[in-house]
Amino acid sequence: MDRTRFFVRVAAVYALIGAFMGSHMAGGGGLELSAIHAHILVVGWLSMFAFAVYYKLFNIPKNSKLSVIHVWSSFIGVFGLTVGMWLYYTRPIEGMQTFNTIFFIVGGTILLIAFVVFAIMAFVHGKFISEE
């Protein structure tokens, strides 16, 4: 898998969703979704794009197990956090509050794991992170 291409494409999708949400909120005058909009742009667009740049700039081994865990936990975590946040705050289906809360918490936890793995990779694969 080309990690850079994957992260750039995912980032592009989140950028479109975030921009659309911002446009919709500006046009409608309501800011009820501003926290969700901000998280989609920060963890969905900016973090995913930053990860793409990381994999492009530094020669992190493609067979790294940490890298595989990082890619998939980032993808699943961002989706889980943002969708879970949307479910939690908008409550589109009545009677699902417990599910919505768990979805939100699990998504956020998986994303936290992704960032922990990223921090570990910065040290484990530190020899590949250089200005040379």
Rank of each mutant, 00 (worst) to 15 (best):
A50L: 07
I40V: 14
E32A: 11
L31K: 14
I69H: 13
H39F: 13
S67G: 15
I69N: 11
V68G: 01
S67N: 13
I60R: 01
S34P: 01
S47P: 00
I40F: 12
A52K: 11
V53C: 11
K65F: 06
N63V: 00
V42T: 15
L41C: 03
G29C: 03
M48V: 01
L41F: 06
V53G: 08
F58C: 00
Y54N: 03
H37G: 13
V68N: 12
H39T: 08
G44E: 06
G30R: 14
I36C: 08
S34R: 07
F58K: 08
A35I: 13
Y54L: 15
I36K: 12
V43N: 03
N63R: 02
A38T: 13
G44A: 02
F58V: 11
I36D: 09
K62A: 10
A38E: 05
V43C: 05
M48C: 09
W45M: 11
H39G: 05
N63T: 04
K65L: 07
S64P: 00
L46Y: 08
L66P: 00
A50R: 02
G44P: 00
F58D: 04
A38S: 14
F49T: 02
L33F: 12
L46C: 03
S67T: 10
L31V: 08
G30E: 11
N59W: 10
A50S: 12
S34K: 10
F51H: 02
L41I: 09
G44T: 00
H39N: 13
I40M: 06
L31F: 12
G44K: 03
P61G: 05
Y54H: 15
F49Y: 15
I69F: 13
V68H: 15
F49K: 05
Y54S: 09
L41A: 14
L46F: 08
V53H: 09
S64H: 08
W45A: 10
K62N: 12
